[in-house]
Amino acid sequence: MSAVEVNNIVKSYNHKRVVDDISFSVDQGEIFGLIGPNGAGKTTTIRMMMDITKPDSGKVEIFGESLGEDTKNRIGYLPEERGLYRKMRIVESLVYLASLKGMDSQLAARRADELLARVDMLPHKGKKIEELSRGMGQIIQFLVTIIHEPKLVILDEPFAGLDPVNTELLKQMIFDLRNRGTAIILSTHRMNEVEELCDRVLMIDDGRCVLYGELAEIKSRYRNNSIFLESEGDVGEIEGVIGRRENRGYVELFLDGETSAGDVLQQLVARGIMINRFEVSTPSLNEIFLQIVGEEHE
C-alpha cells in the first residue's frame, strides 16, 4: 500500500488553475521530492494532501483512506515559513501540538524529552520559543513535526536558513525516519538537496506535472550522450565520437548515439592512454529543470 495516492487533483483560485490535474504516489520508506519554482503550486498541493484546502476535483488518499481526522494524525507537517507560539515554552509547545495529533500527553512529554536529548537541547527545554536562535527554533519545529511518530512526513523547504552543522543533523534524522519505513515528501526548489536525498521526484511548473519518476531514470533519460575525459597526452581520433569540446583540464566527447561509453573506453585502453578521469556525463537536476522550464516557456 502506498503512503500517498493523489489522482488528478485540480484547484483554482480566481479562475486561475493553481494545480492542474496532478497525479502521483509516494511509497512507504522513500524520500519523495516535490520540486518546482516558487509559485508552481507545491504548497497548494501539500495543503490538499492534509485536507487544509479541498481540491475542486480529483482525489487524495493517505494510506488507502480518504482524508479525515484520523489521516491528519498520521501526517507530520513542517510548513515553509515556520513559527510556533512565541511565548510558549519548548516542552509545552511539543506536548500541546503532539496532543492535537491525538497523542497522549504523558507519552508526548516522554517523547519530547527523548527527542530533545537527541538534538542536545534537553537543558533548554524550559526556555520560551522566542529565546531561541533561528536554527534552534527550526530544529524544534522539526521535532514538532515528528514527535507523534507520523507515518508520512511532509517537509516544506526544511533546510532554508540552517547552518551546515544543523543541516547535517537534520539530514541524519530524515534518513533515520526513512529507514524506519516513514514516507517523506520533501518540497523544495533547491535541486542539490533533492539529488542528495530523494529516490523519486515530481516536478511541477505552473500547476502542471512536467516530470515524474525515479531520479536515476530521469537523469539517464536527459543524458546528452557525452563523456568527460581527463587523460595524459592527446587521445587522437576515436570511432563513434562526433564532436569534442575542450575544457580546462578535461575534454568532453560527444558520441554518435550508437557507440556506448564502454566502446570508447575499450578504444582508449587499447591505445594505452593514461586515464585520470572517465565519466559518463549526467546533467544535474538543475540543468534538466532549466531545460524543461525553458522549453515550456518557449
Binding site: M50, I52, N73, I75, Y77, P79, E81, G83, L84, R86
Partner: peptide, 17 residues
C-alpha cells in the same frame, strides 16, 4: 492575528479541522 502571522495556523490546521 498572531497565529496567522507566525504560521502556527498551518500546523494547527494540519492537525484539526
Amino acid at each position: 492575528g498572531e497565529e496567522k502571522e507566525n504560521r502556527v495556523m498551518e500546523i494547527l490546521l494540519s492537525s484539526i479541522s
